[in-house]
Amino acid sequence: MELRAQIRGFLIENFLFGDTAPLADDQMSLLDNGIMDSVGVMELVAFLEGDLSLGIDDAELVPENLDSVDNLVAFVSRKREASVA
């Protein structure tokens, strides 16, 4: 599955229980729009580490990496390229 669709699918199933409306676009902040709370971040990390098999350092747990679909896609892509290189 395409990465973007996979990430959107997880967010919609896990945090929005199928409601696509709140995730109107891929730039919007997941936190500011109430899609994910501060503890929900841990569920997101579990998804990245589990379903996407990424290793994530604490230092990477910043909004620039995790707080929108676009940021997540870019972050995961960078991580994958780095692990291949």
């Binding site: 936190l31 500011d32 709370d37 501060s38 971040v41 747990l61 909004p63 995790l66 707080d67």
Partner: peptide
Amino acid sequence: PYLKQSPPEFLKRFYGA
């Protein structure tokens, strides 16, 4: 105390709302 597991930047965003 459970927020200690929560990344500080996210904590800031959540409670900073």
